[in-house]
Computed example of a mutant assay.
Amino acid sequence: MVKHSPVTGRYVTIDVDGMEYKVFYLQNGTGTPLVCQHTAGCHNHQWRGLLEDEEITRHHNVIAYDLPRHGKSDPPHNVEWWKQEYRLTADHYVNFIVTLCDALDLRDPIFMGSSFGGNVALQLALRRPNRFKAVIPVEAAANSPGFYLDWWRHPHANAAQVCASGVWDLMAPQSPDMDRWLTWFYYTQGSEAFKGDLYFYSVDHDLRDELKNIDGRRCPVVMMTGTYDYLTTPEESEATARQIPGGVYIEMEDIGHFPMSENYPVFRIYLKEALRIIRERTSK
């Protein structure tokens, strides 16, 4: 029996800070746009469960894109990108997301990102609160130092294996073996971009002195972190949310650093609660 997924994929070409990007994204659903950013060194397949969730896509237009240099999105086409080291900055990251939302003509989207995608969600709430209905930072914190390391691309190491193996213990043991191995597999494919992503994650992202300037009433911020995440601990995420006026924190039990791909059935329980909170706060 042939079963076709309702998820469709398309490319859109955008210009960000003088860089021309051909960006691939997956889409399914109708209603409020829900824009999803994958974790560092990975791609939009992490959101496969959400993209095919009939209950959520009934009310949300779910869009999961590949950041340039990840998945099916190439490096910039108009520059000799191979002649310089890739280092993702907060400025460029924010500009990319806003430009993509503009290009897709998304009105009042909710932005959700995980890990370094969760950290940029905080950046968006600070810098562009009027562009987003709300943000959902997953596995995020105000600051994540210590992970921008040369050995992610050391010539004596198998970079793909090093990057992938680094994610294994960050997943909860309760998560299904199939989904844990798929998450591992995704990471074997993204080693080239991983270190550059971590420049944003561990060097350029630091909002410790800026959290008080994020208005969680103007742009609701609902943070979610798994109990098995020792990279960005629940304590760090909760402390971040507490310093944001109007910020909300949800702790996700029995799940780790890659909740949307390692155990989507558990993740969706908490996501539905986050979306409920956002509806309540934005319907007034």
Rank of each mutant, 00 (worst) to 15 (best):
A142H: 09
P137H: 01
L170Y: 12
R180T: 00
V138L: 01
W151L: 03
L149M: 04
N130S: 05
L100Q: 04
H156W: 13
R107Q: 15
P109E: 12
N158M: 07
V138Q: 00
V135P: 01
R131T: 13
L106Q: 00
A103K: 11
P155M: 05
I136C: 09
V167Y: 10
S175T: 03
A103T: 13
R131Y: 15
D169S: 10
A164V: 03
P155C: 03
G146E: 02
W151Q: 10
A160W: 04
A157I: 15
C163F: 03
N143I: 05
N119V: 05
A164F: 07
C163T: 15
G117K: 06
W168T: 04
N158Q: 10
A140I: 04
D108M: 13
R107K: 15
H156D: 02
R180Y: 00
N119D: 07
R180E: 00
A103Q: 15
C101R: 00
R128C: 09
Q174I: 07
C101A: 09
C101V: 01
P155T: 11
Y148F: 14
N119M: 15
R128I: 11
M178E: 15
N143S: 06
D169L: 13
A157E: 14
V98Q: 07
A125H: 02
M171Q: 12
L149F: 00
F96R: 10
R127T: 13
A125E: 07
P145V: 00
N143T: 07
A172R: 04
A164W: 12
G118W: 07
G117C: 08
I97W: 14
A164R: 13
M171S: 10
G166Q: 05
S115P: 10
P145A: 06
W168E: 14
V120N: 02
V98H: 10
R153P: 12
M112D: 09
V135R: 09
V135I: 11
A140C: 08
V98Y: 02
F132V: 13
M171C: 09
V135K: 02
V135M: 07
G166S: 12
D179M: 08
G166I: 01
R128S: 13
A140W: 14
E139H: 08
F147V: 02
L122D: 05
L100K: 03
N119W: 09
L122V: 05
N158P: 01
V98N: 02
P137I: 13
G113V: 11
L104P: 00
S115D: 12
D108E: 15
R153E: 12
K133S: 14
S115Q: 04
F96C: 12
L104T: 01
M178Q: 06
A142C: 02
R107W: 04
N119S: 08
G166W: 07
M112S: 10
A172I: 07
I97M: 14
S165R: 08
Q123N: 14
A164T: 01
N158W: 09
A142V: 00
L149W: 04
M178T: 06
S175K: 00
I136F: 06
R180V: 01
S114L: 08
D169R: 13
I136S: 03
R127Y: 06
